[in-house]
Structures are given as structure tokens and as C-alpha cells.
């Protein structure tokens, strides 16, 4: 059942990204381009998503188990460290360069954009580099 829910969530999430305009890198870059002709659309994507999700997370926080009886796995880490900030900055630079973040990249890949294939392959390589380096440390 949880697999089926995850599948449906992926479908809804993907359709939301397409409808929102997030799968169009040119639109994402137009949102990030404050000095150019600015397209504020993506602020509404985040606002809309947060408005709905805030209510759900408030409810989720008050429960130990999900509606399917699974453990509620919310992040517990509170430390704000260099890793968090530098990682996020690196992500932001990559996002600004390509106009793609992980979700929209997967959807663009499935829409048959060959540029997205290049991006997703590099992204997976980047994630693998993190995986290898964090295994060496631990």
C-alpha cells in the first residue's frame, strides 16, 4: 500500500511541476533573474505548495504513526553547519546555471528532452560522488 501511495504521490508531484512551469528551465531562470524582465510565477508555486503542506505537517507532527500505521520519519537534525550551507550554495549555483532542480529534471527527462538526460546523468554522478566520499569518512 505504501508503494502505491508513493507512486500516486510521484504522479501528482510530477503533474504539479509541469502545471506550475517548473519543468521549463527558461522560466526557472527568468524567476532567478531579478535584474532582467522578472517572472515572479515560481514564488506562487512555493507559496501554494507551502500553504497546503503546512497544514499536513502540523497534523503529522502531532502523530507518532502515519495513517497507514508507519513510523513518522521527520528529520530530527537541528545543527546548522558548514555542510548544510556550502551544499546548498553549490546546489543554488547548479540550479542557476541549468534552471533545473532534481524533480523537474526527472520529469523533463521523461518528456524526452535529451538535454535533461545529460543533466540527470551528471546529477546522479554528483550524488554518487557524495555517497563515496561520505562512506570513506564514516
Amino acid at each position: 500500500m505504501q508503494t502505491l501511495v508513493a507512486f500516486a504521490v510521484g504522479l501528482i508531484f510530477g503533474c504539479g511541476l509541469i502545471l506550475a512551469g517548473m519543468t521549463n528551465p527558461a522560466k526557472v531562470i527568468a524567476f532567478l533573474d531579478l535584474a532582467g524582465p522578472w517572472d515572479p510565477s515560481l514564488a506562487l508555486v512555493m507559496g501554494g505548495a507551502m500553504a497546503v503542506a503546512s497544514a499536513a505537517f502540523a497534523l503529522a507532527r502531532s502523530r507518532a504513526r502515519s495513517l497507514l500505521g508507519l513510523p513518522m520519519q521527520l528529520p530530527t537534525l537541528k545543527t546548522i553547519d558548514r555542510k548544510l550551507v556550502l551544499g546548498s550554495v553549490a546546489f543554488g549555483i547548479g540550479w542557476g546555471l541549468g534552471g533545473l532542480c532534481p524533480g523537474p529534471a526527472l520529469v523533463a527527462l521523461a518528456s524526452g528532452r535529451h538535454e535533461a538526460l545529460v543533466f540527470v546523468a551528471a546529477m546522479l554522478a554528483g550524488m554518487a560522488i557524495h555517497e563515496i566520499s561520505s562512506r570513506k569518512i564514516s
Binding site: 550551507v85 529534471a105 538535454e115 543533466f119 554528483g126 557524495h130
Partner: peptide, 15 residues
């Protein structure tokens, strides 16, 4: 795009 993908992959995991 390759550079962007690498940065997004590494950055999102470290961050």
C-alpha cells in the same frame, strides 16, 4: 549542463 548537474547532485546531498 554537466557542471550544473554535478553541482546539483553533490550540493543537494551535502546540503
Amino acid at each position: 549542463l554537466v557542471a550544473a548537474g554535478l553541482l546539483v547532485g553533490i550540493g543537494t546531498r551535502f546540503g
